[in-house]
Design a protein around this nucleic acid. Structure first.
Lengths: 121, 121
DNA sequence: CTCGGATATCGATGGATGTCGATGTATTGG
DNA sequence: CCAATACATCGACATCCATCGATATCCGAG
């Protein structure tokens, strides 16, 4: 089986690659990185991530996020789940509220992978 | 019509934004950036881009690229078109062959947008 | 002009994805 | 224990997208 899928979130897979432009990506590497970009490749999720990141302490309550969009609450919940599952957002529950927090290192790694900046690891 | 779409390739839209994590993305900004990430968010296209970028002079002939994949020629052609349309690859024809060349500045801008590195413009 | 090779375009198809309303689950207040 | 609020899950639906085979287009060789 060529598909022995790792116990590795997409976000972890990014850290192990040299920049896109330096040497050809292996098929496996590409398959691991693509989901991360897919998670990012939606206007709503881009705004969600950006909203969370630019909030105080880099985290925001779902209740705040819902109001920023003209979309149903399940839809926002779905998008947050996608971002959380690939490891771009952390999730923590406090009382009735759920807070999502940005993972800056994940974004930094991804940015370095794309932009070709060697890396500040 | 809220949709007066610009004469602006996605790749040009990127250069105008501060990093994702700095301030919330506007709806319009998100709508312009998402297509660029969508173009990147496919394992085959990631490898294609990486192959082209790491080739000599940052460009490669389609004939070389086809052989690197287990996919039909039309499929590769389609992926290259997607990357070209968003401005990540330049296209030039020489005789019978078509060469695609990486646009490093586009990747750099996108990387900076995601990674939060201010920018080396 | 004709042939063959290199790429692009077209149409079809199966599978993934964004969105919604309805409903489920958990926590707090009374 | 009950009601209300915050959030997640579910099922359905429409749309989008990766892929293919067939075919068109372009160009150099002879």
């Amino acid at each position: 089986m060529s598909k022995s899928l790792p116990v590795l979130t997409p976000v972890e897979a990014v850290a192990c690659c040299s920049p896109l432009t330096q040497e050809p990506l292996s098929s496996d590497q590409a398959e691991r990185i693509a989901p991360l970009l897919k998670a990012l490749a939606d206007p709503v999720r881009l705004r969600l991530l950006s909203l969370v990141a630019s909030h105080a302490d880099g985290e925001a309550c779902v209740c705040d996020l819902n109001d920023a969009f003209d979309l149903s609450q399940p839809t926002i919940s779905h998008h947050l789940k996608v971002l959380h599952e690939v490891g771009l957002l952390d999730r923590s529950k406090r009382g009735v509220w759920v807070y999502y927090a940005i993972r800056r290192s994940a974004l930094a790694d991804l940015g370095a992978l794309i932009g070709g900046v060697a890396g500040e690891r």
